[in-house]
């Protein structure tokens, strides 16, 4: 393992430059240039059209190999990436493994080199630890897309959310988006905060203090409140995060009912939104906890559009990372 050289130069978070990995990969939306984000979203719009055709397959990535390396259980994201790769004509291989070297008997470094030796063109990685996509990229030559690394980032989710928001609201400049739930432990929230800022939106996070990231203002430059009712009338969109059961054990909140009372999106709260206000949820939903069924199935909810847009964004990314590098 190569030691890291020359540490100690970075003196402030403000000096952190583009961490996105773009244009060779996509690790993060942190620092993803605005032009690149809009380019991805525009390309994804075209892919939405492709996905609605009778014949949905493009020949663009024919002969290219995409490995979905999932070190954490996931159905939705894996299916979405798999479908996207197949629609682009790539050969898609799914690979699942345990994240702990103890359980699988080899280190992530070994796994990375093994995958690299199969000469993939792209590895999509989902891993329970933050930073795993960077780790992988150091050890493989190919493009890497982060499909969720621990509580860190989920950049394709943010891009599909941005596409969904822009379809409904147009330009996001000056728009206000609330993100409600366990922001501290949400990769969806972190990626969305970065991307929405890049696209000019204001982000307000809503949670109990137990779910608020440490020094959030410094770290993420986002506002925070625990008063959802007061915030909703000035929101153009509200994103509900999935409440994860394991957070109960950590006592981040007492129980589901109490969370629903304080932060759940029920019909009364949904009515506080302005008439154009929309509702997003990355899924899978806990109906009756963070979102009530009447809201989840109502007209403002964009949840199924998000799923459709997810495939399109992932098609666009694969096209842009692989298709355009073809000589």
């Amino acid at each position: 393992m190569k030691p890291v050289a020359g540490l100690g130069q970075l003196k402030s978070l403000d000096d952190l430059t583009n961490r996105s990995g773009w244009p060779h990969s996509l690790f993060s939306t942190d620092g993803l240039p605005r032009a690149a984000a809009l380019d991805i979203i525009d390309t994804a719009r075209e892919m939405v059209g492709v996905g609605r055709r009778r014949v949905k397959k493009l020949p663009t990535l024919r002969g290219r190999t995409v490995i979905n390396a999932f070190f954490e259980n996931s159905t939705r994201t894996r299916v979405s990436f798999e479908l996207a790769g197949k629609r682009m004509g790539a050969d898609v291989i799914n690979f699942s493994a345990s994240a702990s070297s103890g359980a699988k008997g080899e280190t992530l470094g070994d796994t990375a080199r093994t995958l690299a030796a199969m000469n993939p063109d792209l590895i999509v990685i989902r891993h329970p630890d933050g930073g795993a996509p960077w780790f992988l990229r150091e050890r493989v030559g190919c493009a890497v897309i982060n499909a969720g690394d621990g509580i860190n980032e989920h950049p394709t989710q943010a891009l599909l959310d941005a596409l969904t928001l822009m379809e409904q609201l147009g330009d996001l400049e000056g728009r206000t988006v609330a993100i409600v739930g366990d922001v501290a432990h949400s990769r969806v929230a972190r990626s969305n905060i970065h991307l929405l800022h890049t696209l000019g939106a204001n982000v307000v996070c809503v949670s109990p203090s137990t779910m608020r990231p440490a020094q959030m203002d410094l770290a993420l430059k986002a506002q925070w409140t625990d008063d959802l009712d007061a915030l909703l009338p000035r929101c153009d969109a509200v994103m509900m995060l999935r409440i994860q059961r394991e957070r109960l054990r950590e006592s981040l909140f007492p129980h589901n009912r109490e969370f629903a009372i304080r932060f759940g999106l029920n019909p009364r709260r949904a009515d506080l939104l302005p008439s154009h206000g929309i509702i997003l949820h990355p899924g899978p939903m806990n109906r009756g906890v963070e979102i009530e069924p009447a809201v989840a199935d109502g007209d403002r909810a964009m949840i199924l559009s998000q799923v459709e847009n997810g495939v399109a964004v992932r098609m666009a990314l694969q096209l842009m990372l692989l298709g355009r590098s073809e000589s």
Binding site: L13, D30, I151, A214, L218
Partner: peptide, 13 residues
Amino acid sequence: HEGAVSSRAGLRG
């Protein structure tokens, strides 16, 4: 360490 950097890095602090 738990603080602004862990919040930015997305790691438990």
